[in-house]
Design a protein around this nucleic acid. Structure first.
Lengths: 190, 190
DNA sequence: GTAACTTCTTGATTTCAATCAATGGAAATT
DNA sequence: AATTTCCATTGATTGAAATCAAGAAGTTAC
């Protein structure tokens, strides 16, 4: 395993900390593989590991008595941890399901805490993550306010075309807050 | 000005840091007063002060071509700063308007940064704030998914009764994502 | 290669909230 | 006190999306 794998690349692109301890950190992650359809995060459980998406597609959703609502899709290498649950040890409200076969790279909370105790950049990572989550959430919230379902779909076509190639339309529809039928009709008149 | 004012109380209740530097910090805030109806935060501007609500009620909302959507109401002493805008110096997407006459206690970013340079708890404050925002946003998001407008209204009655005493119903309706007419009908059949 | 299942599309119908419109009452202004 | 403005309610109508239903096209499994 070299320092050019996706996890290292992610850090050098997204969190260009000084390298102190980083290689050791990255190499402590272990690989977990999942089959299409598997649930990898369950409502009401507590995140006890950092989880990094190495390969595959994941949908993140809320579910409550028969109903579901997709809130995000992960198609690229990134952390998919529920950081609220992870850092506060509170039960998550989300589910995550593999839309394709998936490889994760996983690090136990215990090992992560050992790392943060030793190296400053571990704490900095968590701080930065939370700030980014806030920015993303507010951007999403605002987008859903200004745009209609049709405009949101056009925006996905522009900014996240990979979603449309690999994710079933009924999942996109749920993400947009409409039924598959209305999404089909929106697409028809475009 | 004593250490028992609302801002000090807020910190001792919500952020019980060690007291080092805190009194000096709190006393650096200056009072700003606003009249009912005044806009105190404008879309596309950058937060350059910390703003603490001392007295009065504020509504926070998005606005875009004639349309508005309320996203929160502040009725109690708390920070009303857009912390994303404040810490990243990015333009805010929100508006804030005084629903009543309002007193704020305000600290310039410059002075706040001087404080954080000197005292550890300044940084800790910002970190904690961001984590709390994430928790709140996710809770809100989940609530809006599981509950109907009627259930959300019942929840407001239970958990935020002060809202219903002091905030016009059409503002509550906007917060719930419905029209004043449908809120009126919901209330009728309760 | 056929069967079974999944996903998307299309049409017909229903339903719930928005819109339009009017009224009454409360609050604010003079 | 009278006038005006604002706000909540109620009724009638409209409209957009959900639901219901069926079929086509594509995929997967045997």
């Amino acid at each position: 395993m070299t320092t050019t794998d996706k996890l290292s690349l992610f850090f050098s692109n997204e969190f260009p900390f000084n390298k102190e301890g980083l290689e050791e950190f990255v190499n402590t992650f272990v690989i977990k593989s999942y089959k299409k359809g598997e649930i990898i995060l369950q409502n009401d459980t507590i995140e006890n590991e950092l989880r990094f998406l190495d390969q595959g597609i994941i949908r993140e959703y809320y579910a409550s008595n028969e109903k579901e609502k997709n809130i995000n899709f992960y198609t690229n290498p990134t952390f998919i941890t529920d950081f609220s649950s992870f850092t506060h040890a509170t039960p998550t409200k989300k589910y995550q399901e593999c839309i394709t076969d998936v490889d994760l790279r996983v690090l136990s909370k215990e090992k992560f805490l050992a790392f943060t105790n030793q190296y400053q950049c571990g704490k900095l990572f968590i701080e930065t993550i939370f700030q980014r989550i806030v920015v993303n959430k507010e951007t999403e919230e605002f987008n859903h306010f200004v745009n209609t379902a049709e405009e949101l779909y056009l925006d996905i076509m522009k900014t996240k075309p990979d979603w449309l190639l690999q994710i079933p339309q009924y999942h996109i529809a749920s993400y947009l807050g409409i039924t598959p039928e209305t999404l089909s009709r929106i697409r028809k008149k475009m």
